[in-house]
Design a binder for these strands. Sequence first.
DNA 1: CTGAAAGCGCTTACAG
DNA 2: CTGAAAGCGCTTACAG
Lengths: 342, 342
Amino acid sequence: MMAPKIKDVAKQAGVSVTTVSRVLNGEKYVKDDLKIRVQRAIDELGYSPSHIARSLVRKKTNLIGVIVPDVTSSFYSTILSTIEKTASHNDYNLLVCNIIEDTDKELKYLQVFQQMRVDGIIIMHEKLNDEIRELLNKLSIPIIFSSVKPVDQKFMSVIIDDYAAAYDATRHLIELGHTRIGFLGGDMRDITSGQNRYAGYCRALADCGIDVPEGYIRFGDYKTQSGYEKMKEMLTQESYPTAVFAVSDDMAVGALNCIHDHGLRVPEHLSVIGFDGSQLTEQVRPRLTSMQQPILEMGKVTVDKLLELIEDQKDSPTEDVILQHKLVVRDSCKNLKSSVEA
Amino acid sequence: MMAPKIKDVAKQAGVSVTTVSRVLNGEKYVKDDLKIRVQRAIDELGYSPSHIARSLVRKKTNLIGVIVPDVTSSFYSTILSTIEKTASHNDYNLLVCNIIEDTDKELKYLQVFQQMRVDGIIIMHEKLNDEIRELLNKLSIPIIFSSVKPVDQKFMSVIIDDYAAAYDATRHLIELGHTRIGFLGGDMRDITSGQNRYAGYCRALADCGIDVPEGYIRFGDYKTQSGYEKMKEMLTQESYPTAVFAVSDDMAVGALNCIHDHGLRVPEHLSVIGFDGSQLTEQVRPRLTSMQQPILEMGKVTVDKLLELIEDQKDSPTEDVILQHKLVVRDSCKNLKSSVEA
DNA sequence: CTGAAAGCGCTTACAG
DNA sequence: CTGAAAGCGCTTACAG
């Protein structure tokens, strides 16, 4: 049995399809009795309007394409969930693409988004190759970046000040009396989460006249596994730091585990500070001190801004939105000064 | 500037739209020179075919609607990522809905899926109310359940044998010499992950003639937080168990943390076994012994089976797929027997 | 091998 | 307040 179409409803109700369309769209100027007849026909037939036919004529799909680096990451899964919530709240639906560093897949998805005529696109990574940049630029679909700010982009980003956040995180360790401060960094091809966080770390050290051996600085891929491995490299050196700043909570947890497996204790032997403020911070012991991004707000603002871009159409203000970061102290950092006094 | 349409391409190439459509769809029976002219016109114009117009006539959207209880859960985020991977591999795209126990949202999404004319639906929870059941039954869209088997459903499920898995997990603790075995359960309105796992636990105890105080048995909502709270209730009793079986890794981690915060150690004072085999098991210390679901396989098989349903159309075999569970021993359970001998 | 025409299921001027 | 008709951007018989 074919699904009923608007024509069937019209016949059943004894009106024109135009009228059915009108009550479907809640227009006024339909007499009550007709409205009722139409409604009854709809119910009797179990009619459900085709969103796709509708999209074709309205030139609006209410679809948002989302590109996430990795949904299993504690940070991205959380931001995705609030993006979904906000979108759904505004009657938009999400087409999600999980690219696992797979550039071909990303390109393909971007093309799919184009063909699907999504109303907007949210991108949450910054490792854009030339082919992708080119496509992005000719796409004529509103695009917004969330949590990252790729270089050379005309698109709006919703981010924190990663440089300042990394600076503040490092300063926190310094204020606790640490001078041998290791760094578990991200991918230096990433401006936002790679370079900026590294620069913040370096600057904080420099401002305090602290020098750090090369071996204290390692770069990974933000994941737990790489945090573990890079920490391991650090621990197997002759000398190792008294504190480590990891640029993601996942990496920090990897470091936590590595330290534990090496028979050392956090924060007694080694302090660890993470970045993101994801739910993982509370799921591990010791609970992880972390530089928190306002994840929920970030997701919400991203969607809100994107919807503005979609609705406005015109020369939308491309100004970035910078949200506030915030240090959340938990149990993974030791105060060297107070222990001296004690 | 309006996006070019097939008509523009046809004009540019000096052929009919039919011919353009043919080369677009890779049909043979198009002379090479025409094919080349069309291709050039497409490139010059930057033409991207409208998937939505296409869907309208083909009556196929290549869309799969997915209903996830909570993408931030370690289990669901992982299964979602493999579902996405498999779908994308087969040129299907995902419309994801994150229902957070929000029945209204779920119903609304189901209706959206219907209006979107998705080709298939994947549902990963079993708390179906009457309204939703009714809609599901008249939907005439292939539906498949993943990781759960709701009661009274004619739809196919891809699951493990939760009863057996819970039985085996409990038996593992018994074999290690435990007799005071607590239970951190799920929602008893859930057949699969609530009732079945509880039944498996009870049966294992019964088979070994073990009796357990009522206070050793608590029910939560699968999340870390509730694992923590329920464990706390157990620990503040006069007597508490020597081992606990939690029906999700997230809950088990909550238990781990609670035990830690109470100054007790795992597994020395208390053993903990989880369920799911999610990545969390390796992210915590001690690493969590867990009854593993084949998450990746489960996601893949779910999509594969759904695609079969979509392609077959006919009276598709509704037989459930039962995947193998597997105990993965890590560091969170103590062998009471060997410690006696030691 | 190629094209004119009908049709997918809606909405939206336009007329009345 | 209501309806006939055109059109959204494609694909698919049908003819040739």
